[in-house]
């Protein structure tokens, strides 16, 4: 869903179109604003780079001539407890980011492959939340009555749940045979729907009383048609903005869970887990911490900045 959101269709009824016939559709205007926003351009470029890094990880690592699983015990210094030989974590022409202490695995490969996990969980869990949140939120606004009440109370229960604690508990309870990345996507995504549902419901409430919904109803359209074909396209702006704000938080949550040891297990490369492993090495091999930490920092930063810019461009309240 986030992928399709990047090429939005023009809204059927542009918000505020009745008051003043704008020469540009809101989408065009937002796009124009984004193109002139330097922060948005830089962060988009950074995100594009991250995505390329994740998708082309096997290629990049092949270019370096390494892989994330081979041990290079020979490159370790037995004298200091198997830290990397040489300076800066053993950086060299063969190992661009050096090697991992204890195992001698290639750090560049670990960081590049780690992007796969982070982006996959960050984007997919946001998609899970959007799908649930958008359907449930629009349905609550459209049908109202008892359904609205039930959805509202359920969202309250979810918001009051100590989500992080539950995720930790689930990480232990679910059998190891179940793929961890999928578990993370489901769990993080599932705990994130109430926020989406509330925002979407609020926006949808103002739409269901508009003429175009009445028109569709008069023409005999069913609830399914109205929700998916009439309301949803007009809710694209808040959906995009809220997803953009959520993605960096999700990437952070995934890394935090892995840092706590209940995320993606070894040997799958993961930034959070590598940072956790690096904890014992901060004094002897700082690079071990700085490469995955820097990658995580840049990823969260880029998505946060882009989220800000998208909100400025798409949210009519912040437009000045």
């Amino acid at each position: 869903m986030p992928e399709s959101a990047t090429v939005p269709e023009p809204a059927k009824v542009p918000p505020g179109a009745e008051e003043a016939p704008a020469p540009l559709s809101p989408w065009r205007r937002a796009l124009r604003q984004l193109v002139h926003d330097r922060a948005a351009l830089v962060s988009t470029a950074l995100i594009a780079l991250l995505v390329i890094m994740a998708v082309a990880a096997p290629l990049l690592v092949k270019l370096e001539g390494q892989d994330p699983y081979t041990y290079h015990i020979g490159l370790l210094n037995q004298a200091n407890g198997s830290g990397p030989k040489g300076i800066l974590g053993g950086m060299s022409g063969a190992h661009w980011f050096g090697v991992e202490p204890l195992t001698g695995r290639d750090m560049f490969a670990l960081v590049v492959y780690g992007a796969q996990t982070s982006l996959l969980v960050g984007l997919a869990s946001t998609a899970v939340s959007i799908i649930i949140g958008a359907v449930v939120g629009t349905a609550a606004a459209f049908f109202g009555g008892w359904l609205d009440a039930v959805i509202g109370r359920t969202a309250d229960v979810f918001l009051a749940f100590p989500g992080m604690i539950f995720m930790i508990a689930l990480g232990i309870v679910v059998p190891q045979a179940f793929p961890r990345w999928l578990l993370l996507v489901i769990v993080i995504g599932f705990f994130g729907w109430p926020g989406f549902a509330r925002i979407i419901r609020g926006q949808a409430l103002s739409l269901v009383r508009r003429e175009f919904v009445d028109a569709a109803r008069t023409l005999g359209a069913g609830p399914g048609h109205i929700i998916f074909r009439e309301l949803m396209p007009n809710l694209m702006a808040p959906i995009i903005v809220f997803s953009a704000i959520s993605i960096p938080q999700r990437i952070g949550t995934e890394a935090a869970l892995s840092f706590l040891g209940v995320g993606v297990p070894a040997p799958t490369p993961d930034w959070g887990r590598t940072i956790s492993d690096a904890t014992d090495w901060v004094q002897t091999d700082l690079m071990y911490l700085l490469f995955p930490g820097g990658a995580l920092f840049l990823a969260v930063l880029a998505f946060t900045v882009l989220g800000d810019s998208l909100r400025d461009a798409l949210d009519p309240r912040t437009r000045r």
């Binding site: 940072i275 690096a278 930490g293 920092f297 930063l301 946060t304």
Partner: peptide, 15 residues
């Protein structure tokens, strides 16, 4: 504040 938002607690803590 952007730096603060983008840096995980544990990374700041470790440094």
């Amino acid at each position: 504040s952007l730096t603060g938002v983008a840096t995980p607690t544990y990374l700041v803590g470790l440094l």
